[in-house]
Design a protein around this nucleic acid. Structure first.
Lengths: 144, 144
DNA sequence: ATAGATAACGATACAGCGTATCATTATTTG
DNA sequence: CAAATAATGATACGCTGTATCGTTATCTAT
């Protein structure tokens, strides 16, 4: 369950169970359910509703932590902005709609033999990769 | 020849053959030969050597234009910075060294049937994609 | 419970990158 | 050579993310 993973992540990396972190965790659990993607500023604005005193830096700190724990994925948009998305932790990539910017996960990936091919071509030791696809989603195509 | 493509790009998109553009084109042709990647600020600093009055905005404008013409590739680094690289225009992707940040082109790509698989999975009309690989280059591994 | 120690917070300032504005400059054209 | 104007360059601005640092709130030990 993703909710437990998020709560566990906060517990592991910290000594104190603070109010801001509880609020952030709750909100992220809701966002995980809806599958929505968001910018840090989006998230901050949402959180301020629940506690207007909550600071921007705190949101940045928490998001940064969760990204490094692998629970949030950072998605680079073509215009350079960063969006985030709660992700289960299994390997996957993203497909974003060029019109409405909705993001969905896809479970395609480069075949294994391509990686060996790259290693042979370049003599690099491959450590990771990032694949992003762009296209128009069904809704936007219908609306066209 | 890439030199001609660059000069042609400037000619196509503009009415005037200005000194700043000539300087920028020359520098980019040299960078194409060396295969180096660079940030916009790198480029600006180089160009100021030749003409200290050359403005930052002009460099941004020219780079932006060449990216949209497909002659420069914008490369996103993990830390969020943007590098650029003169590229031939053929389809390819990038492999960057996680240690020295050197960038090389690789000609692997997602197989065609994966694209149809995505279309079936998601019903998106796929328009494009971006693949970036990370690893350690031979030199850095040797030095390790 | 309460007090002390301190992790975490939040306000603020700062830095970097890219864009927008606009008076000035330099290329082009008649 | 002069007028028209594309393009430039100085400057200001906005946005995103980071660093600093005094304050607050959580935890722990009494």
């Amino acid at each position: 369950m993703i909710a437990d993973k998020i709560r566990a992540a906060f517990q592991e990396t910290s000594q104190r169970n603070t109010r801001p972190r509880r609020i952030i965790a709750e909100r992220l659990i809701e966002l995980a359910d809806s599958g929505a993607d968001f910018t840090i500023d989006d998230l901050w604005q949402m959180l301020r509703h629940e506690d207007p005193r909550l600071g921007r830096a705190t949101v940045y700190r928490s998001v940064e932590m969760l990204v490094s724990m692998g629970l949030l994925d950072r998605i680079e948009f073509a215009d350079g902005t960063h969006h985030y998305r709660v992700c289960g932790g299994t390997h996957h990539h993203h497909l974003t709609c060029t019109q409405c910017h909705r993001v969905v996960e896809v479970d395609v990936c480069l075949p294994l033999d391509q990686f060996t091919s790259i290693r042979n071509q370049t003599d690099f030791a491959i450590e990771g990769h990032s694949l992003t696809l762009f296209g128009r989603c069904p809704a936007c195509r219908a609306r066209s």
